[in-house]
Design a protein around this nucleic acid. Sequence first.
DNA 1: TCATCCAGTAAACAACCGTTCTCCGAGTTT
DNA 2: AAACTCGGAGAACGGTTGTTTACTGGATGA
Lengths: 216, 216
Amino acid sequence: MSHSEPGGVRQARKQRTRQALLDAALGLLEEQSLSSLGLREVTRVVGVAPTAFYRHFRDLGELGVALVQESLSSLHTTVRAVLAEQAGAEERIDHTVAVVERYVREQPAHVRFIARERHGGVRAVRQAIAGELDRFAAEVAAALKSQPVSGGWSDEDVRMLAELYVDRLVMTASAFLDVRDGGDQDTERWRAVACTARRQLRLIDVGRQYWRDAGS
Amino acid sequence: MSHSEPGGVRQARKQRTRQALLDAALGLLEEQSLSSLGLREVTRVVGVAPTAFYRHFRDLGELGVALVQESLSSLHTTVRAVLAEQAGAEERIDHTVAVVERYVREQPAHVRFIARERHGGVRAVRQAIAGELDRFAAEVAAALKSQPVSGGWSDEDVRMLAELYVDRLVMTASAFLDVRDGGDQDTERWRAVACTARRQLRLIDVGRQYWRDAGS
DNA sequence: TCATCCAGTAAACAACCGTTCTCCGAGTTT
DNA sequence: AAACTCGGAGAACGGTTGTTTACTGGATGA
């Protein structure tokens, strides 16, 4: 395992420390918010000189934007699968909640980052998250529209429903996270959150089935 | 207008600068988050020595908790009125959204603070907000339960619905805020957000009307 | 009137911050 | 093999931070 690539050793090392910076930042952000995160703090964890930071990001805001993409891309692809599947409402709801559960368990730091910085103090990061969730909502809207239940729905209403769903996904994930580092016994409170989340989605789904257009 | 109170001049002055600290902090928090706010930064705006801060708060976390109470008490009483009123679903929804609109217009800093620090980096403040919203949800649940539509609803389901409502209120307020400092023309996007918010509440209400209990 | 209290002051502390500049040395290209 | 890139190191900069210690002076209560 020595020389094989024609000339990517240099770039590979660069992207490795870049990833190390992202990972270190994500770790530190579990107990503070981005606008209070220090440049030196990050480089110290990685074990590089503070000046090395500038070889990868102009400032912490730029790193934050990179973290947004990293955090949402994984969930994005996972949920896409759930949306595509042809199944009953009940089943789809169960799968959705299960996917969120798994995501929170496997990538808690990513979830926390998104929930925290969605309304956080760094404008560029807020906008990046908003844009990403917007694309997300658009996909959900497209999936919803293709379902037979949406007959006679205006595009605006479908979009409205999609945003409702996306917001709930984020809130549910955040709720799972809260009980997770709440400390207590996982199983009890955790299952309660899952149950509540399912019921809320079910209620929205009922509203969807009996929805009738009205003015304004 | 000189001597009238028996002995509250000293305490009155103290609470005045205390309020000044709260106001200054709230202003500074429009463009950053609490965990990055500096103690000296606050006292500088007020015009007092940094050490004077300790006469009022142990640290910025304690100030944050005080801000939570201040921020939510006003909205709390306002929404209480809407909950109490006996009116049709359509009317109540319109009133609710109108109240949120007014709140965002009159107290944008408070709304931003709550939305930002709800998932922010300071544990004590997060818990304070969670606790306050919990009491809030309990009140909403009580109001919902007393309505005839809730016949046969379990307490758990009523609570589930109440949390759904509260979350939506916060998200709606935050959405208004985003379009507010998005800059563009207020009227157009603003009315769109209001319209979407009404429709989402309406859809939830439809779901509520046709809700039927089911296991798990 | 006089002793007491206490909100606010002033100075100094060590620690940390973001950023600039210069330099090095291993990987890359010719 | 020589010339060149460029990620990273190192040192230094001016500035800010939270906190401590000792002190002041006007309201307070006897």
